[in-house]
Design a protein around this nucleic acid. Structure first.
Lengths: 337, 337
DNA sequence: GGCCATCTTGCAAGCGCGTGCAAATGCCGC
DNA sequence: GCGGCATTTGCACGCGCTTGCAAGATGGCC
């Protein structure tokens, strides 16, 4: 029916009175085509509503321009912020993002990567659980680049971008000490991702160097609700902590709300709270959370920069790891900023 | 170099000792292939790490399986929730989402749609500003389906999914009256999107039928910060309102925070507040916002359902509009729930 | 005018795949 | 044993595009 669908380069060529190659070259940056021909082609293309078929182009060039974003919990403030930053950078670099949600089934990071391979994505950026070794091998063998964000691991081949979680966590200890706190607690989820564990580890270790023990509590997945539960657990301890580091802002928000509403504690007077990620809500008046800013823009930049750079010389540079610094954002949830 | 890249159907065929067609048919549901051949093919494919090239398949079938999500403000709680719901439904339906961020340049919905056309997306789902008439024409002529979510408009051809914003807004009036409020205000952004305006219109109209006037204030774009500014403006009026309907939860959160911190008003005792969207933060203890739930799952379902259904009979059903109901979620920010 | 260098253009091959068509195969009943 | 039928298989073409190659066009210079 109206299934005449898309107009092809041939039709443009016919209308412009040139060969199909001329049309192709007109839309290929850097190709040799005379101004006159180019004009005729562009005119015809415009009249006909022609758009280069990137599927076919990708087939020929063996490079689709597609970058696959593999992500779980994508409605989360931090994740959606990262997705936004990545799409912006990708689009500026002339690439396009394909989005795969891994919340559906288990082990679906592998499924997602397969999807990326099917569409011959130039690269996959993973913000989700760890992919199997076997599938990452497959990706690399197929010439797919791989970027792992905030999931440090022993994989080689892909680019890994991480924050210095441990070092950042140790700075929380300094902040808490300066606020005059002495009874430290750490609230974490049970997700057990490398960055979450690094924050925990860094905090506990730094406290220990000051001769302080830390009550560590883990619960559920990384959410506001878990923060509330963690507050229940930590604030009913015989030795109630006077400073708690939440591994994530989302946890911190839940924690603070429970501390205030259910335990009538005033933050920061009776309880200091710090978080991590600097999600938008951390700056809201109700929270004023002292936290660490994820350099989203920088992360995204580094990722697509690497994708572009490796385009030419891809065999030489094997694994590559980038470790970024997280800036401490002082707000009211810790005394003495 | 290691640029051997992807394995093709031919290689699988060679290894399995069959023709290339047999390989193709093995991966084409419903094609005629004997169990024995199928087994050999699958074995070879697995050994070689073969994956059907969806670029080439899309080229042949004239159907890429790609659906383009065109969205602005994607890091916003409501938008990211919608994106999540959509990707889930799309993936369950065997399709894949391509994500285009329109925050970069102006008029970029058109650019985004062009991108969708280039990749021969089967459809585009728009959660951003309105596309030009000309480009939507182009989409439809090219056999691209178009879905507009929450941006009612006179466009024909595409599927339009909207909430009954006006009716919902009128229910806020009822709720406020029941709470004993009499001085109404409405806080809106200056974005002026159809759904925002419909909420405003519905609220004002319903108030008027009860003989009540509404102080309407608009400011900035739809954000937490704007909510704070709106509070500044509305709560310094000589006749301070005792009930305010914020066109969006994000505005409501900012509004509530300012009302409490800067005006020391207690919600809901001195001021009732209602919002719209039911973002996650609306349920947080600090807000407990009475609001309307966007039926995200239903919206997403309807969208992909329509995409599938139209696959066969596409010419007959012209425009199609779906109007969904928004459930009122009672929480503590309005008295007498 | 002739020659060479430079630029432009068309031809044709091929990217990886789906699919119509005809040949091949297998099976059954007579 | 053979014709008829259903199923499976291979061939070959085409989807829309890029690109190497060689032919054609142009112009400068002796």
């Amino acid at each position: 029916m109206s299934q005449k669908v898309f107009v092809s380069a041939q039709e443009v060529a016919d209308r412009a009175g040139v060969s199909r190659s001329a049309v192709s070259r007109t839309f290929t940056p850097g190709a040799s085509v005379s101004p006159e021909t180019r004009r005729k082609v562009l005119e015809a293309a415009d009249a006909l509503g022609y758009h280069v078929n990137h599927l076919a182009r990708g087939l020929m060039r063996n490079e689709s321009g597609i970058v696959c974003l593999i992500v779980s919990d994508m409605a989360t403030p931090h994740r959606s912020g990262l997705i936004k930053a990545l799409t912006e950078q990708l689009q500026s670099a002339g690439k396009i993002a394909m989005l795969v949600n891994t919340d559906l089934s288990d082990g679906s990071v592998d499924l997602a990567l397969r999807q990326a391979i099917r569409y011959r994505a130039d690269a996959s950026i993973i913000l989700s659980g760890m992919p199997d070794k076997s599938i990452t091998q497959l990706c690399l063998k197929s010439g797919q680049r791989l970027v792992l964000i905030n999931r440090d691991d022993e994989q080689d081949g892909p680019l890994r971008i991480n924050l210095d979680d441990e070092e950042a966590a140790s700075r929380v200890v300094t902040a808490f000490l300066r606020a005059g706190c002495r009874k430290f607690a750490l609230a974490n989820s049970e997700a057990g991702t490398p960055s979450l564990m690094a924050r925990e580890k860094g905090f506990v270790a730094a406290a220990r160097t000051h001769g302080l023990d830390v009550i560590v509590e883990r619960y559920g997945w990384t959410s506001y609700e878990s923060g509330r539960v963690l507050a229940q657990r930590l604030l009913t301890q015989s030795q109630r902590p006077d400073a708690v580091f939440c591994a994530t802002d989302l946890l911190a928000c839940g924690f603070m709300d429970a501390a205030r509403n259910q335990f009538s504690l005033s933050v920061p007077n009776q309880l200091c709270v710090a978080g991590f990620d600097d999600i938008e809500q951390a700056s809201w008046a109700s929270y004023q959370l002292t936290t660490f800013a994820q350099p989203l823009a920088t992360i995204a930049q580094e990722a697509v920069l690497w994708l572009d750079s490796k385009e030419g010389a891809n065999s030489q540079g094997r694994a590559h790891a980038i470790r970024l610094h997280a800036d401490l954002v002082w707000r009211g949830s810790v005394r003495g900023g």
